[in-house]
Design a protein around this nucleic acid. Sequence first.
DNA 1: GTGGGAAATGTTATCGATAACAATGCTCGC
DNA 2: GCGAGCATTGTTATCGATAACATTTCCCAC
Lengths: 337, 337
Amino acid sequence: METKGSRSPAMTDVARLAGVSHQTVSRVLNDHPNVKEQTRLRVRAAIAELGYRPNRAARALVTGRSQLIGVVARNSMLYGPASMLTEFEQAAADAGFAVSVGSVRELDRDSISAVVDRHLDQRVAGLVVIAQVASATEALAEIPADVPVVFIDGDPAAGRSLVTVDQVAGARAAVRHLLEAGHETVWHVSGPTEWFDSAGRIQGWRQTLQEAGREVPPLLSADWSAAEGYRAGQMLARMPEVTAIFTANDHLALGVLRALHERGRRVPHDVSLVGFDDVPEASYFIPPLTTVRQAFGDVARAALTLLLGQMKAEPGAADTVIVPAQLVVRESVAPPS
Amino acid sequence: METKGSRSPAMTDVARLAGVSHQTVSRVLNDHPNVKEQTRLRVRAAIAELGYRPNRAARALVTGRSQLIGVVARNSMLYGPASMLTEFEQAAADAGFAVSVGSVRELDRDSISAVVDRHLDQRVAGLVVIAQVASATEALAEIPADVPVVFIDGDPAAGRSLVTVDQVAGARAAVRHLLEAGHETVWHVSGPTEWFDSAGRIQGWRQTLQEAGREVPPLLSADWSAAEGYRAGQMLARMPEVTAIFTANDHLALGVLRALHERGRRVPHDVSLVGFDDVPEASYFIPPLTTVRQAFGDVARAALTLLLGQMKAEPGAADTVIVPAQLVVRESVAPPS
DNA sequence: GTGGGAAATGTTATCGATAACAATGCTCGC
DNA sequence: GCGAGCATTGTTATCGATAACATTTCCCAC
């Protein structure tokens, strides 16, 4: 387009070409009502001819707000957060927004404040905080009240604008599936307990067992890694009474799978297993893993909708969207032998 | 900090408090040499007292360039690109830059141009293009020559500023490792052949076999998924002469692993297997996977360094950095039985 | 056909920084 | 003790958009 050696055209260039004032060009650009149709077309033509594109910096300066959405996320290669981010970026791009990521090593107050400040420097139009732990929610105190904010995965009870997957229901589906296969009870390898996601899954697991009048075995809590899944699996593999395991994500399941394999306990013949996430590889585990899928795309789109809503209307409007989770049945569950 | 209800302080506020002109404040901020030490301190104090932070939009407007680096990447949850992105964001943040991601469904010219244009709208200070296929490199024609650009994973022969992992050497190490274990030859399940990464790994595989005077078996090419790895694995599992397999990434290896398992061919007893990437779960595959690790952090930092270099000096300076890959030996390789 | 009011357009101020130039102040040599 | 020359600081213009207000145009009712 703008392969000319000179600088890119500004609004006044368009105005000159169209024979109007720059303000009229601005009005056309912003879809103001009081512009004659004929003028509008003339301006549009001039814009097209020059390949004009508005300078976002200038606009941001005068309006005090950019076409940029800041995302705060933990720096991690975890499947969930990473999926979330790409999905959100796609949705935002479709709505004409750019996304600036600010990742943070730990979700503590200070790190989050620093990233939020960086985003505010850029005069972001809104913020999305992927806040899987309570400390992240606390950091919201740092965010000025007039900046639209949406949380993903935060505390469902916080009364802030928030989108999250129905972890409890997902876990219930997983546990119910195992009970229905005939298992007496279900063991759970959870994620870090300070994560809301973990808490929800633990709660769903515990409730379902209790409602069915089953004994609730001790909780094994881990981080999200295959390594810790393996460690937990080594314990579980030694206990013959363990016939059904629900892990808080698929990578934990992978670790458990290997531990069971090493002790000669076969899945699903001896032990049934259900994961969470439905990572793309899950159907190629040995055996293919029954798991719970989270609709990250839906979460991302819902978050964007909430954010855009806040930009138009009052920021700070609390609105909670809970996206359902879905059990994906494969071959890692069977009746107890 | 700026919890006051009013707007955040501007440079003139700082100037007034420090008893200097706003220009002097600007000079302090930009580390200009000719400011008296005493004045500098006074201004610094005023900045701290007010919690002043420069308005990036205003700066971008007048300099024509923001403190924002645009990254163009394919929208995918592949381990490599995703790792790349987070690592780069970290490095950029440390250098005081924000990162705007622009992901794209396909790496064709049009999609890339669109994303690049969006970034140019934001007046990015530089661009990083994660360009795994040739079509991405072609799209560089759209990028004005005065914008610093660094490619990651692009065509090593393109003569553009580029950082990439030494795919050839990585593949050579993998194949050599298998040959040294005593295997007659090594089969290869590659990624999509139009990817530079794939091409490099194929080349390294082929070269190493040829140099050792071994027969080069037919290439099995796939996408990067466990699903296609499984399909390729089903074929390979049926062929008794296959004793060593090198897959172009770990997820392919996972699929192969399952296919071999299903046909009762044991790894590494009957078949040896080497992957590529070293995803965190790789040591929890059954058996733990020998693979090749790519130093994504190094790639990201090198890319940033190149980019900053271009910003200071001439953009367009061609400079190629090749980051080594490293074989990680685990348990999926053994001598042929 | 004329006055009123809305629709359409133009003018000027503004956002908050940097750049270019102007104007001080200081040091030092003779 | 005075002027050259550099170090330091201030003034004004500028980037490219939107906002607020001013002005012109148009249409219609009376």
